[in-house]
Simulated assay, not measured.
Amino acid sequence: MTQGQKPDRLLQLLGICMRARQLVSGEEQVLKAIQQSKAKLVFIGSDISPLTKKKLTDKGLFYEIPTTEAYTAAQLTQAIGLHRATIAVMDAGFAKKMITLLG
């Protein structure tokens, strides 16, 4: 993936969201946030195991929460400063802006 303007802006927004404490990360916490319908957008590392990816994607579809695999686990890790491959955005405003940036 090329380093265009959109990805940089979205990753910066993820960092801001992290500092605002509007993210949960890690597979278990993300699944719980989806099941409680608290997650507004879920980022799934594009390079994680197919089984984990399927589990998160299926939960997202069932609970009607958008998911994206636009970034690798390394990019997500760099954006939030924690080693994570799955992230759920809890704030509707942040999620709406990120969905717009994703196109």
Score class of each variant (00 low, 15 high):
T52V: 09
I80T: 14
A20Y: 02
I87Q: 11
Y71G: 03
M18N: 10
A70V: 02
A92F: 13
I87M: 11
I99N: 08
Q29D: 15
M98Y: 07
L31D: 07
A95P: 05
L11W: 05
P50S: 03
E69C: 07
K54C: 07
T100K: 15
Q78R: 11
K6R: 15
M18H: 14
G26I: 03
I65G: 01
V42T: 00
E27M: 06
V30P: 00
L11C: 07
A88G: 04
I99Y: 05
Q78V: 07
G93N: 09
K53H: 10
V30L: 01
Q36L: 10
S37Y: 08
Y63G: 09
L13A: 13
K40Q: 10
Q29Y: 03
T72P: 06
F62A: 08
K54D: 11
F43A: 01
L41H: 02
D58Q: 04
E28N: 08
A39M: 02
C17A: 11
G60C: 04
E64C: 12
C17V: 05
E27H: 12
R19N: 15
G60W: 01
R9V: 08
T68E: 01
Q5C: 11
G93E: 13
P50H: 12
K53S: 12
L11T: 02
T77M: 13
I87F: 04
D47M: 03
L51F: 12
R9I: 08
P50R: 03
H83M: 14
Q75W: 06
T77A: 08
Q12R: 13
C17W: 08
D47S: 06
M1R: 08
L41C: 06
T68H: 06
E69R: 05
T52W: 01
V30T: 01
Q29H: 11
Y71E: 00
L82Q: 15
I87S: 06
K40E: 14
P7T: 05
R19W: 13
G93A: 12
P50Y: 04
E69I: 04
K96M: 13
H83L: 11
L61F: 09
I80F: 07
G81I: 01
K38Q: 14
Q35Y: 13
L14Q: 09
P7Y: 04
A20H: 10
F94P: 06
L82C: 12
T2W: 15
A70M: 00
M98C: 10
A85C: 15
K97E: 15
T2V: 14
I80H: 10
L14R: 08
V30H: 06
D58R: 09
G103M: 03
L31N: 11
D91I: 03
R84N: 09
